[in-house]
Simulated scan of single mutants.
Amino acid sequence: MATNTQARTYAAAHFSLELDGKDEVSLFRSIEGGSIKADVMTYQHGANYDRWRQLGKPKFEDIKVQCGMSMSKPFYKWIEEFFTGKAVRKNGAIIAADFYYIERARREFTQAMIKELTFPKLDGSDKNAAYMNISMAVEGIVFKKGDGKKLAPPKMDAQKLWTACNFRFRLDSFEQACKRVSKIDSFTVKQNVIDYHAGGARAPIKCPSQVDFPQLSFYVPESDAQPFLEHFAKRGVAGERPGHLTGMIQTFDNDGTDLFTLSFKGADIVNVQPDKSDSGSEDIKQVKIDIYTESMSFAYVDVQTTG
């Protein structure tokens, strides 16, 4: 009687991340990318219509992960270094596990650098968990079979710590006007990565370039917007000499314990835009304020250590 020797299938809901051989980086919400592609080279002879094709250089797709606050301190230390412009490279693996958290497959990557980091929209009326999207550029990927090791169970309580409504926004010299900030739009910090193709090498070397810090957009009630309007009238309209501002975004859990702080420097207001007035609306009239930034820094608070 023939027996089925095929391995059992498993769901895509259990996975983990290793960095530099450490498996305590914990779980993240989702992952995409991390595939291997190759260009197709076409050659056509001038004497006929035949075409010959062959594979060119391999391309390793960026790895994109979505995580909340369930990641461990080494991972957030990597994020802190990304904000300073240090292109810290790490080797690691994406681990796929079955229902029992047994390792079934792994994708090992080398020379990974953080390329983009997108912060979610923060909204005082949103009670859902918040997640960051992180893109990593890699120089190599190898697919391997899992070794059957059991992964550590996820710390689900830590994952639920960060909700979109738990934040504070501060802009120095506007502390009173910022006490009722209702939301902050999503924004992305980018590390430009340049591909360097060396002779004889199959794949390019990933070289870091400058870090691009974005504009921030936040919303306040129109009754609190007058200080921002006066400031922009002096700087943006009258052309007074700019004086750079500083500030921060601070996140915390439901108990008020700090999670991380995102500080920014070299900022100033570039736009003050009131909401549309509508006779049928019952929403609070708000004003959107855009500021540019020259630099940012990320400081993670280890909840387990401080708690």
Rank of each mutant, 00 (worst) to 15 (best):
K121A: 07
G256E: 07
I94N: 00
M296S: 04
Y76F: 14
K86I: 02
M71P: 00
S223T: 14
A137N: 06
P154S: 06
P208R: 11
V138L: 01
M41C: 02
G85V: 11
F75T: 01
A87N: 03
Q250M: 12
L245R: 07
K149V: 12
L245H: 07
F143T: 12
N128M: 10
F119P: 00
W52E: 15
I63W: 07
D23M: 04
Y300E: 11
L262N: 02
K190I: 08
C207L: 10
M41L: 15
V193W: 04
K86H: 06
K145G: 11
D50A: 15
M1N: 09
P58I: 07
Y10S: 04
S295C: 01
G243F: 04
F252S: 02
F167E: 05
G239T: 08
Q6Y: 12
Y76A: 03
K234Q: 15
N128Q: 14
Y300I: 09
V189E: 00
M113F: 07
I184Q: 09
K276M: 06
S70P: 01
V272I: 14
F28Q: 07
V25K: 01
E32L: 09
I31Q: 13
L161Y: 13
E103Q: 15
E230N: 14
P74C: 11
V211M: 13
W78L: 10
V193M: 15
D39H: 13
F82A: 09
R170L: 12
P74V: 09
E222T: 14
H14S: 10
C165G: 00
Y49A: 13
R241M: 11
H45C: 12
P208K: 10
I79Y: 05
S16F: 02
R180M: 08
I102N: 04
D185P: 02
P208F: 05
